Simulated assay, not measured.
Amino acid sequence: MENQIEVREDLIFINLDCNSRDELIKYMSDQMINAGKVKDTYCNAVLERELIYPTGLNTGEIKVAIPHTDPVHVNSAGISVATLKNRVEFKNMEDPNQNIDVDLVFMLAVADPKAQVPLLVKLMGVFSDKDLLSRIKKSKTSNEIKQILEELIKE
């Protein structure tokens, strides 16, 4: 299936240590560029989009962000996930004047906008499932997170 999101262990980071949203987005973008998932323009496009359409979500105890940008910056569909050593501040998607300290980041590379909607619906399901978020947050290896996400995506 062309729009299937590929989950790769080399794009999953455990206990990532970043001091700011921009540093985090740059690091994760660089890894996706190195993996050939996205174009060199991806990082700046994500950073610019964050200023207009923030992606922090107040999902209860474990908060998440889903930075992404337009398909024009993407080579092939993918997702990069990071559990954070220290929370990183993102702006709230629902209220851009509010800051949210996030624990988990799901960076999306969406190649086909029509495929983005079902993926976001699945991810929203994850975000509303406290146990699942907790499992991802507590994962000790990228393989654990990969398995959790693959289960979800194929459902």
Score class of each variant (00 low, 15 high):
Asn3Gly: 11
Asn86Ala: 00
Leu123Trp: 04
Met1Gln: 10
Gly36Val: 15
Asn58His: 13
Pro96Phe: 12
Asn19Gly: 09
Glu61Lys: 04
Val126His: 00
Met93Ala: 10
Asp22Leu: 05
Ile52Thr: 14
Arg21Ile: 08
Gln98Phe: 09
Val102Tyr: 05
Met107Ile: 09
Asp129Ala: 07
Glu2Ile: 10
Val121Cys: 00
Ile52Asn: 08
Lys138Phe: 10
Ser76Cys: 08
Ala82Ile: 09
Thr141Lys: 09
Thr41His: 00
Gln116Arg: 15
Ile145Thr: 08
Lys154Ser: 07
Ile66Ala: 07
Glu2Ser: 09
Ile153Pro: 01
Asp103Phe: 04
Ala65Asp: 08
Ala111Asp: 14
Asp103Ile: 14
Gly36Asn: 11
Asp40Ser: 14
Glu61Asn: 06
Val81Tyr: 03
Ser20Asn: 04
Ile66Pro: 02
Gly36Gln: 12
Met28Pro: 01
Ile153Ala: 01
Lys91Ile: 13
Val102Met: 07
Asn3Tyr: 14
Gly36Lys: 06
Leu120Thr: 14
Ile100Met: 07
Ile153His: 02
Val38Gln: 01
Leu57Gln: 05
Asp131Glu: 14
Lys146His: 07
Ile79Cys: 00
Thr55Ser: 01
Asp129Lys: 06
Thr55Leu: 02
Ser142Met: 08
Leu57Tyr: 05
Gly125Asp: 12
Ile136Asn: 02
Lys26Trp: 06
Thr69Met: 04
Lys138Met: 15
Ala82Val: 13
Tyr53Thr: 11
Lys140Gln: 13
Ile136Ser: 01
Cys18Pro: 11
Val46His: 05
Leu104Lys: 03
Gly56Lys: 07
Ala115Gln: 11
Asn92Asp: 15
Leu57Ser: 08
Arg135Thr: 15
Lys137Trp: 11
Phe90Ile: 13
Leu123His: 06
Ala111Cys: 05
Glu94Lys: 06
Gly56His: 06
Arg135Glu: 15
Leu119Gln: 12
Val105Cys: 03
Gly78Ile: 06
Val38Met: 00
Glu89Asp: 13
Gln98Cys: 06
Ile100Pro: 01
Ile33His: 00
Pro67Glu: 09
Pro96Val: 13
Ile100Arg: 01
Met93Gly: 04
Ile145Val: 15
Arg87Trp: 14
Gly56Leu: 09
Met93Pro: 00
Arg8Asn: 10
Val102Leu: 06
Asp30Gln: 07
Asp30Arg: 02
His68Met: 04
Glu50Asn: 00
Ile5Ala: 02
Pro118Arg: 07
Asp112Thr: 11
Ala77His: 05
Asn58Tyr: 09
Phe90Asp: 09
Asn92His: 12
